[in-house]
Every structure is written in C-alpha cells, then in structure tokens.
Simulated assay, not measured.
Amino acid sequence: MSCFTFTLRLCLSFAALALSAAHAQDAAAPPPAAASSPASSPAASTEAAREALGKKEGDVDQAKVLKDTLSATDKQYSLLKAGKRALTYDLTYSYIGQQLISASFTDQTLTQFAIQNTRGHTVTNTISADYGVRDNLTANLTVPLVSKYSQSETFSGLSNGIGDISLGARFQPFALSRTLPALTATGTLRLATGRSPFKTIEGQGLATGAGYHGVTLGVNASKVIDPVAIFGSLNTTLGLPVKHLSQTRNGQTLREVHPGPSVGFGIGFAYALSYNISTTLSFQESISARTRLKLVDANGNNVDTKTSSQSSAMVNLGLGVRVSPVTTMNFTVGIGLTTDTPDFTVGMNMPLHF
C-alpha cells in the first residue's frame, strides 16, 4: 500500500468517525420539551442527560474503531500483481585480460616456456519476461544473446549465438511489513542452450554458455529505511553432470564433466538522491567447489582429475534515472576483485513497454 493510499484511507476513516459520533449524539439527545414541568428538578434533569449520553451496551467503542482503522492494512507485495506482464532489456559488456604461462620440464630441465596474453570482450543482450501468477508469485523467462571476441597469440575470432536460457520464479511468503524486512525466495533452472565450452574445437570458436544444466536456489532480503534501502542475498547452485563428450585437448580426450556446487552471497544499499535519481553500492561473491573431469589419454587409459576451486568477487556501482512515471533506467559499473572475475563490467537495464 502506498503512503498516499494509506493517508487517504486514514482521512476517510476520521471523517466517518466524526459523522458517526455526531449522529450518535443527535440520536441520544432527548427531544425539546414544550414547557418545563414544575415537578422536574435540576438534579433529575442532569442525571437523565448523563444517562442518555452515557455508553450503552452494544454501542461501538470509537477508540477501538480508530485503533482497528490504523492497524488494518491490505496484504501488499513488491512483486508483479496477478495477471500483470513485464519485459526488461539488459545490455552488459565485460572485459577480461589474462596472462597464461606455459612451461614444460624434461628431467627437471626447462624445455619450453611461453607467456600468452589473452583478451576477451563479451557483449550480452538479455530479454527478460515476467508474469504475475499471483500477487506473491512471479514467473520469469530469460533469453540472452551473446557476442564474444577473443584475441591471443594462437587464436583471434568472434562468436555470436544464443546463451543459456533460464526459467525462474520468485515467491514472497510474507506480505510487506513496516517493521520486518521483505523476504523473497528464488528458484532458477538454467538450460544449456548456448554453445558448450566442452564441445568447441580449439582455435575455431568460442563458447556462449556454461555447457551444463544448473539449478539455483536463493533468498533475498530488503529493508527500506527512508531514504535508504538495504538489501542482501544468499544462493546456492548445483550443476548437473555432462557425459558422452569427445573433446580432444593436449593429447587427451574429455569424456565427462561433473561440476562442483557453488555458494554466493551479496549485500548492498540504494540511496535516493531525489525523486528521479538514486544510487546503489553492492558487493557480491561466489565460491565454486572443484570440478571433476574424466579423460582418456593417448594410450587409452582413464584419467580422473579435478580443477582448482574458484572464487569470484565484484563491487558494483549503480545509478538509477527515472525518465517517466513508469520507466527507470539503471546503469551499473562492476569492478572485479579476483582473477576468476572479469576485470570490469558495464551494464544498462530498462523496462520495455508496448
């Protein structure tokens, strides 16, 4: 419920109470007498008036009505209303630069040493569609279009294609409260619709997806302390194994990939500079367990190995600009804090109206 609606209802309630009190007094007052009776005394008239104006059994307690009016609120949620639809467009650019050292030893003697500089540019256009199933339940469909350009000493190329499509839902178990934070449970199923990194041919293409299906469960919390909104999130992701692969790299053939689980969290705040401008500052981190790989070497022997664990962290700076009563454009800049994170990202988000 908006502050305006709550204030309007409160004013109407006070007006109703005033009219009710006036009507009660008019009904309770005795009719005027044509002439004073000599038998009636001032004490008797006072007692009769007090009894007539006093509270009778069954009368409505005005204090109770006022208390109920102030405490009664409709259940309100921050998600889409039931039956409502929304489209959102996201544009994100990310850059990552790496230096890879390749070294080979034979009988403890260095026989090969090389440093490879790799630079990667990724532009992602994402369309998200939301539908309000209920006032506290929203379904979501996300379709990304990915363009990647990579440049190194051994390969330079551009790849365009669809990314990993996601199906998700957001659920608010409790209505909004003036004292408690708003809680939202989220669930996302990521489909491996993009070009898999486990199926690309070395030097001939770039991946546009993760290569495996994944399920993410999380919870978000937010609290408005005017003019600041504080928010945080916690989530976990489980990746489904990928089998029947046949990718050859460095004389070995990849057969199976078993992704390790990951845990992520984030925290931040938004500050309203005015009715049309707001700023955000947030931090997010994700820690992924080791991924198990099953390979076959040149001699036909099975080899089981694990990658190292990964930790990605980023600080995001945002600016929101309200360009119309129903349209707010958001701009973000992310700064990578670890080697497993892009060096920086730049993004823009806006709703679409048709």
Rank of each mutant, 00 (worst) to 15 (best):
L317F: 15
G266L: 12
P259Y: 11
Y275K: 09
N220V: 03
T328I: 06
M314V: 10
V242W: 10
H213N: 13
Q284I: 04
D226W: 03
G264M: 03
S274W: 06
H258C: 04
N276P: 12
S262K: 03
L240R: 08
N302C: 04
Q284R: 06
G239Q: 07
A289P: 00
A272L: 10
F231K: 11
D304F: 04
V224W: 12
Q310L: 14
T248C: 01
V296W: 07
S312L: 03
P227I: 03
Q284N: 11
P259L: 06
T236Q: 10
N250T: 05
N301A: 01
L319M: 13
F283T: 00
S324R: 00
M314W: 09
G264Y: 07
L317N: 15
Y271I: 03
P227H: 04
G260R: 00
Q252Y: 11
R292Y: 12
G268E: 09
T248N: 09
L240S: 07
V303I: 15
V263S: 10
V263M: 08
A289Y: 01
G232W: 03
A229W: 00
R292T: 05
G214H: 00
V323E: 06
G300I: 06
K243L: 14
G218P: 15
T236W: 14
G239W: 13
I225Y: 06
L238D: 13
E285F: 02
G260I: 00
N220W: 09
N316P: 03
S278N: 13
A313W: 08
R255F: 09
A289I: 04
I267E: 14
V242K: 15
L319E: 11
